Simulated scan of single mutants.
Amino acid sequence: MKILVTGGAGYIGSHTVKELSKEGYRPVILDNLSEGHRGALTEGSFHEVSLDDRDAVKRVVESEGIDAAIHFAASCYVGESMSDPLKYYRNNSINALNLLEVLVEAGVRKFVFSSTCATYGDPVKLPLDEEHPQNPVNVYGETKLVVERVLRALDRSHDFRSVMLRYFNASGADPDGRLGEDHRPETHLIPLVLQVALGQRKEIGVYGDDYDTPDGTCIRDYIHVVDLAQAHVRALRYLENGGDSRAFNVGTGNGFSVREVIDSARRITGHPIPERVTPRREGDPAELVANSTRIRSELGWDPEFTSIDAIMKTAWEWHRAHPDGYAD
């Protein structure tokens, strides 16, 4: 079974390609390499194509005989989305429509979408379940919600079945050491903390220590990238078995504060990792933790990496072996 994986040279996409191959699927990677890396292309066939080139996307889908699609390709920086909304609506919403039009025309009816907990906005209850109101507070979340709404409409109009996976904080690296996290610029906490341990930055900034949490810093749900990749494989199988369109949170249900993450990095690396408290970032909720009951009960998904130290260890091994990332 051939699976189109857009953004398959990126962080989560490349790990998912590896899991798909392990399970006997034939991944077909479509990526323009604006954010992805050639060094992350370890499995499947590859087409260097941008989703804004509808004709090129159509040629790939038709020539490869695609059976289903997993869509990762997107811009994903919350701050940038607020300063450059046109880029985000183009990359995340309009390009997704290009892809969906091609798939519908080709008769492909199974689709797994990389969505986000940012579609929920500020939490009104915790942990967040899939029925939580969706009121995004940033353009990134809005552009993902647009696609979710289109998918619901396609389900009604074209029997186009989709799974929308709403991630929390993807983290960690392939335990085999082949794949890891390499964003440019890097904005995620764990890689930034490890850059301090590697001597690539002097200290780690902590955005606010006066939140209503046990240690005053923000709490997030960190989900290991391999567990996240396996959730995509399970979502695909669910659709293969006739499952209806459905949204699932993907998180462990365990929250760790910024300071707990920094302390974990100190334990794993043996480095003191100096920190400096800076003002809060606008729009940062005190706590975001998933209720993942639905995906556990309906898809049988069960994360392997549930402790922050286990996640940190795989991330440290990758960054220590690849201090310059993929260097491509």
Results as ranks from 00 to 15, higher is better:
residue 232 H to S: 11
residue 183 H to C: 09
residue 44 G to E: 10
residue 305 F to T: 06
residue 169 N to M: 14
residue 180 G to A: 11
residue 182 D to V: 03
residue 293 T to W: 11
residue 36 G to M: 08
residue 328 D to L: 03
residue 149 R to C: 13
residue 72 F to C: 03
residue 293 T to S: 12
residue 3 I to L: 05
residue 86 L to T: 12
residue 183 H to F: 13
residue 38 R to Q: 00
residue 37 H to D: 08
residue 142 E to T: 05
residue 58 K to Y: 07
residue 177 G to W: 00
residue 159 D to H: 05
residue 108 V to H: 15
residue 216 G to M: 00
residue 192 L to G: 15
residue 117 C to K: 09
residue 263 D to Y: 01
residue 60 V to G: 06
residue 48 E to S: 10
residue 29 I to T: 04
residue 170 A to V: 15
residue 21 S to I: 05
residue 104 V to P: 02
residue 67 D to R: 02
residue 42 T to A: 10
residue 12 I to P: 08
residue 211 Y to V: 00
residue 313 K to V: 12
residue 3 I to C: 00
residue 310 A to W: 05
residue 87 K to R: 11
residue 292 S to K: 01
residue 20 L to V: 02
residue 123 P to V: 04
residue 243 G to K: 12
residue 143 T to F: 14
residue 291 N to W: 06
residue 115 S to R: 13
residue 225 V to M: 08
residue 2 K to M: 03
residue 198 L to I: 00
residue 298 E to K: 04
residue 263 D to I: 07
residue 42 T to H: 07
residue 87 K to L: 12
residue 123 P to F: 09
residue 213 T to I: 01
residue 39 G to Q: 05
residue 59 R to W: 04
residue 238 Y to D: 00
residue 101 E to I: 12
residue 286 A to K: 12
residue 80 E to G: 06
residue 179 L to P: 10
residue 203 E to L: 09
residue 135 N to V: 15
residue 35 E to M: 15
residue 25 Y to V: 10
residue 159 D to W: 07
residue 35 E to Q: 14
residue 254 N to T: 09
residue 24 G to N: 03
residue 111 F to Q: 13
